[in-house]
Amino acid sequence: MLHAVIMAGGSGTRFWPKSRRNRPKQLLRLVGDSTMIQQTLSRVAPIIPPERCWVITGEDQAEATREQLPGLPADQIVGEPCPRDTAACVGLAAALVERRDPGATTIVLPADHVIQPTEAFLASARAAAAIVEADPTAFVTFGIAPNRPETGYGYIERGELLSHPEGIPQYRVERFREKPDRATAEQFLATGRFFWNGGIFVWKARAILEALQRHRPALAGAIDRVSKTLGTPEFPGAIEREYATMEKVPIDKAVMEHAENVRVLEVPFSWNDVGDWRALTALVPPDDRGNAVQGPVLTVESSNCIIVADEGKLVAALGVDDLVIVQSGNATLVARKDQLDRLKAMVEGLESAGFGDLL
């Protein structure tokens, strides 16, 4: 059967001050009436029931995640004691799924992306699952057709065209490429052979565990020892002990770059990874001067700004351009749009500056 694994990590830096350590962006209502993790779970609901959905999150975010997803069994929301990147997350989830449902297929997806329309996503998920059912050794990833020379994403180079499941082109993966510089990104776009790596994967849980055993045996052994204790009094101690020594590595580097039978679907949906506050310009309808606003905001002779305010807290902007202004709780951010790449470093410095309570 098909299970969903939702990766819900994050340190709450790129959407500060709205996001905090215990409230990363997937727990925020950035777009629409529900939080991003609620939207992610709703997206898979038509084909995957709650009893086959799993969330791997940070230990300090697990309780808030359970509150937001009350329909999910509590033991299927697992908190990691420290961040170890996606290989540990993927491996732990695969081990838990395989123990619960031997031979299961899993779709692994981030908790904080905006994907539209849902039916196109579901068609892609069904196509990928069918590929894996037909060939249990296959690893399927979702490729996003690029519309600009983006330097902030990893890329996938496609190889031979294999088929069209659900009418969606399926290619063999030639290779994965790291985030490129501008000139390389422009070359990727010009060739038409490259996709953005959307970080969504479909595979047999057993197959990814076997691949981790081949390529990262120490990591695989630690994951196995943790998974055997789930649902027992030994679990908290086991996960704390094993995670302290686990290698911190993404699943792309740990497995995907080395695996042989990797496919990529040229998915037909629109995708936004909502990387920082600038993403709101594509997700929130702008006013007549290009401002994207949320909450009680008054703009006068201001343009191309992103302004967010808590309910009951007015933000008024007079005669400013290209700014990001975010008021949330007891903190306010004012930044030029072109400086947002430095926000993470600034937030990480709050504690040493005497503002650790705002993290």
Rank of each mutant, 00 (worst) to 15 (best):
A4E: 01
M7D: 00
M7V: 13
G9T: 06
G12C: 07
T13Q: 08
T13Y: 04
L27S: 10
L30C: 09
D33S: 15
D33E: 15
M36E: 10
M36Q: 12
Q39Y: 00
E51G: 05
R52Y: 05
R52T: 06
C53S: 11
R66F: 03
Q68R: 12
G79C: 07
C82M: 15
C82D: 14
D85I: 10
C89G: 12
L92V: 08
L96D: 04
R99Y: 00
T105I: 15
T118E: 11
L122G: 04
A123G: 04
A123R: 15
A125L: 09
A128R: 01
A130P: 01
V132S: 02
V140S: 01
F142M: 13
I144P: 00
A145G: 09
N147A: 14
G154C: 11
P165A: 07
P169I: 06
R172C: 06
E174K: 14
E178W: 06
K179M: 13
K179A: 14
D181L: 00
T184I: 10
A185I: 00
E186F: 00
H215P: 03
R216T: 07
P217I: 07
G231Q: 06
P236F: 05
E240N: 12
E240K: 14
R241M: 09
Y243T: 13
A244L: 12
P250R: 03
R263Q: 10
P268G: 08
S270W: 05
S270Q: 13
R289W: 03
R289S: 15
N291G: 05
N291S: 08
V297C: 04
E301D: 15
A309D: 03
V315F: 02
A317Y: 01
L318E: 12
V326Y: 01
S328I: 01
G329W: 03
A331L: 08
A331R: 07
T332Y: 02
A335L: 08
R336D: 12
K344I: 09
K344V: 13
G356C: 09
L358P: 02
L359S: 09
